Amino acid sequence: MNYPHVSIVILNWNGWKDTLECLESVYKIKYPNYNIILLDNASNDESLEKIKGYLKGKIKVNSPFFDYSENKPIKFKEYLKHEIESMKDEHYMNKELILIENDKNYGFTEGNNIGIRYALDILNSGYILLLNNDTVVDNCFLNELVKVAEDDSQIGFVGPKVYYYDYKGRKDIINFAGGKQNLWKFKPSHIGYKKIDKGQYDTNKEVDYIHGCCLLARARMLRDIGLLDKEYVSYREENDWAIRGYISGWKSVYAFKSKMWHKIGGSTNRNTNLFVDYLETKNRFLFVKKYSNNLQTLSFLLYFFVFDFWIISAIDLIYFKNLRRYKSFLNATKDGIKILRA
């Protein structure tokens, strides 16, 4: 097996506890050729202090998935964002961590793009792995992703089998085994969602998209189709990336032997974070605007306003009894209509 260089891009914002557990799991993987690019999106907690403390071996990590390793200190280099913008070349040791401190919160898309540009322009990586900070990975997960990608030069994106970190005390409940999406109603769905893993999804297969929590992207493809669209800020950006890749002839493939566990919104409370709720709705309209024809757009609008609008309204007002969440949904819908009209 070939071991092309992989840059693992991890974005932190006020989530140092999750980030340390993620890092500890990554530093146990068997893949031999990688660097970690850890970006802090202008956290206003003690994230930077805690991350540096962990790298220096001053903070131990507890996890139900592994025992703490005494492989510290971990070599790292630290930069401010403006310092890397003029950088043309830099030498790094294998597995060294690059810590980049952003001057503001750039959101998920542009925050990751900063790390992706660094991986492409400075590290000249063969692959870039986007990895959410609220995840824990199997020690062979990256070997399996790269192995699948290397088998077919037209595979642009590869993703693992994603389990819930803790689903009612179980760790064998699937959250994602590949994704489906269409342009007629654009309501992406997870294959295997909330199913007990009994081996029923143990086949590598081409899918519509890969979950953004753990996504291996071929560098050659990214130079072709571009980086994440920062207009999304967060949510649905991986769907946009996948369809851009598909239009340009690149495949998205689910690799079942690669495994990881996701806390699902570890840095946000999905019930109370109004901005998350807003983006999830508004970005559906943005996606449809970019990729649907007139008939598909009409189909989406009919589906949305006949079904989704009333179901989501009932959930916000009756189930959650959350008027602010409902108003955020209305604002997102209004802004979505403006996007379609533009």
Rank of each mutant, 00 (worst) to 15 (best):
G57N: 07
Y167T: 01
L302T: 06
K77P: 01
Y118W: 10
E96S: 00
P4E: 11
D208G: 13
E101S: 06
F287Y: 15
A149D: 01
W184N: 08
K17R: 15
Y326T: 09
G249S: 09
D240Q: 05
L20Q: 10
L222D: 04
R236D: 12
S63G: 11
G199W: 01
W261S: 04
S125Y: 09
L39V: 15
K282F: 09
K161V: 02
K263Y: 10
L340H: 12
F65M: 11
S69T: 13
N94S: 11
L330A: 12
N33E: 07
D308V: 10
I74T: 10
F65Y: 15
G336L: 07
N112L: 12
S125E: 12
I337V: 15
N322K: 04
D138M: 00
G179F: 05
I51H: 01
S299N: 07
I114W: 04
L215T: 01
R325I: 10
D208T: 05
G107R: 09
R236L: 13
V137N: 07
Y27V: 02
N139G: 00
D134E: 00
R284E: 12
E144D: 14
W250V: 03
Y68M: 13
S25M: 07
K259W: 02
D229R: 01
I264V: 13
G15N: 11
L131D: 02
Y106W: 10
E46H: 08
E101K: 14
W16E: 12
R223E: 11
K104M: 06
D197V: 02
I37P: 03
W310P: 09
E85N: 13
V137M: 07
P188F: 06
L142G: 00
L39C: 14
G249L: 09
F157Q: 05
T19Y: 05
S313W: 08
F285I: 06
W241A: 03
G126V: 02
I84V: 14
Y34T: 01
D202W: 01
I247F: 09
V162P: 09
R117S: 12
G199Y: 03
Y164C: 03
G266K: 12
N293R: 06
L317D: 09
F320K: 15
T268N: 13
V148Y: 00
F256C: 11
L274S: 09
N239Y: 07
G249V: 06
I10G: 03
F157R: 00
L48K: 13
K88S: 14
R284M: 14
D197C: 00
K334I: 15
I51R: 01
Y326Q: 10
N132E: 14
R220V: 11
I225S: 04
W13C: 00
D316I: 02
N322E: 03
N124A: 13
W310G: 12
N2K: 14
I264F: 06
G126W: 03
Y209W: 09
P64G: 08
I37M: 04
G192Y: 06
E78L: 14
Y127W: 08
L330D: 13
K180L: 10
G15R: 10
I210L: 09
V233L: 11
L216F: 06
N2I: 10
G107P: 06
G265S: 13
Q296D: 06
G249Q: 07
E280L: 08
L183S: 07
P73C: 07
V276P: 05
P160S: 03
D103L: 05
Q181L: 01
E83S: 08
N94Q: 11
N71T: 11
D224P: 00
